[in-house]
């Protein structure tokens, strides 16, 4: 292949700085999107288990919409369509004056998409705890809310810890789709380096390695949770 390799490029300024900035945006997107997803997913999951038939239907619809539409489409809808549906001044604010419009929109899209998936995960976790435990908790004098808070949810959380880790790793990778609406996260910065220098293989090679390191680090962190979670169970 007729290609001049130059791996030192990714360690040189300004390109090293671009990669670092890209990593920061990727982590910020993932963390903020994850926080939003957790906040939204728990009530949705609980209403799917405990709600009246109408509320169950509604939360089921929520899950279907956000889980089944490809993330890139959701990203485009939030970015291109929603501001145009809002009243003119509010739409303009969303497009221009809102803090970090592209980043904020990407966090909303990532968070909503992931919340649909997490809601299903939480629900299956709750379902996996034997039904009799709710009755037992009620018989002990706990209210229904207390039964869920102290008995059901802690166990459900331990059951779903492994797939929850996978979901978090997914959001890190999914955050790269934010580049399509102009967030200069890790993949976008690699592209930028490729465009400036024509050393795309090195730029994307570095990005690949960084994603692997991030995923590996997160996986280790989650693994540290696991033994303690098991210990608390017995």
């Amino acid at each position: 292949m007729n290609y001049a390799w130059d791996w030192s490029l990714v360690l040189r300024e300004p390109y090293a700085g671009w990669l670092v900035a890209g990593v920061a945006w990727t982590l910020a997107l993932s963390a903020a999107g994850w926080a939003l997803a957790l906040i939204l997913a728990l009530p949705v999951a609980l209403s799917r288990v405990l709600g009246s038939p109408a509320i169950r239907g509604l939360s089921g619809f929520y899950v279907s919409v956000f889980r089944n539409i490809p993330l890139i489409l959701q990203m485009f809808v939030w970015f291109f369509v929603v501001p145009e549906l809002l009243p003119r001044d509010l739409g303009l604010w969303v497009k221009r004056d809102m803090p970090q419009p592209e980043f904020t929109t990407a966090v909303v899209a990532l968070g909503m998409y992931t919340s649909g998936r997490l809601a299903e995960l939480f629900r299956s976790g709750i379902d996996a705890v034997p039904r009799g435990q709710v009755s037992a908790a009620l018989a002990c004098g706990l209210t229904r809310a207390q039964a869920y808070q102290y008995v059901i949810l802690p166990q459900a959380f331990r059951i779903i810890l492994a797939p929850l880790t996978s979901e978090f790793l997914s959001i890190v990778k999914n955050s790269s789709i934010a580049l399509t609406i102009g967030v200069l996260e890790l993949t976008a910065e690699s592209r930028q380096i490729e465009d400036m220098t024509f050393h795309g293989f090195e730029a994307f090679g570095a990005a690949t390695l960084i994603y692997v390191v991030i995923a590996f680090g997160l996986d280790r962190m989650a693994a540290r949770l696991r033994p303690s979670a098991l210990a608390a169970r017995t």
Binding site: M1, N2, Y3, A4, D6, M196, T197, F198, H199
Partner: peptide
Amino acid sequence: NGTVDVECGTTVNALARQQQ
């Protein structure tokens, strides 16, 4: 990789790109 012999588009000449 030799798929293309010459690129005829709107590519801008730059010194950094000339290394490649």
